[in-house]
């Protein structure tokens, strides 16, 4: 067990925890606009954590550079897709949930 593997394990654990919590959030929140919060950011951070963990496992070479490219790509693309979804729902007239409304 070298230090890189241990850091990798810790980051994988944190990342998987984030991803699981994000999924619980998608199930529990009451409407579309609140659901998009866990799906849009907790998920992204969890995925970045898992991939950075793999970078630590790999050490520094061309393969870990490719992992880094995937991390940057996800960090650019995920918020954009989230924005496009939220914007499309908003324009089509989905009303945001207010406190006290019924769950959808």
């Amino acid at each position: 067990m070298d230090i890189g593997t241990i850091i990798c394990g810790v980051l994988l654990f944190i990342g998987c925890f984030f991803i699981l919590v994000a999924s619980v959030g998608v199930l529990r929140f009451p409407d579309f606009f609140t659901r998009i919060h866990p799906a849009g950011k907790t998920d992204t951070l969890g995925q970045a954590c898992v991939l950075i963990g793999l970078i630590f496992y790999e050490g520094f070479d061309f393969i870990s550079l490719k992992l880094l490219i995937i991390v940057v790509f996800l960090l650019v693309v995920n918020p954009t897709a989230t924005y496009a979804l939220a914007n499309a729902a908003f324009i089509s007239g989905v009303k945001p949930w207010k406190k006290g409304d019924k769950r959808q």
């Binding site: 606009f33 950011k41 992204t44 650019v76 918020p79 989230t82 924005y83 914007n87 729902a89 908003f90």
Partner: peptide, 16 residues
Amino acid sequence: LANSITLTPGTVTIEA
């Protein structure tokens, strides 16, 4: 700004 807002505290951009 829009993507930063989407990624940070409890906020999601829905129009920009």
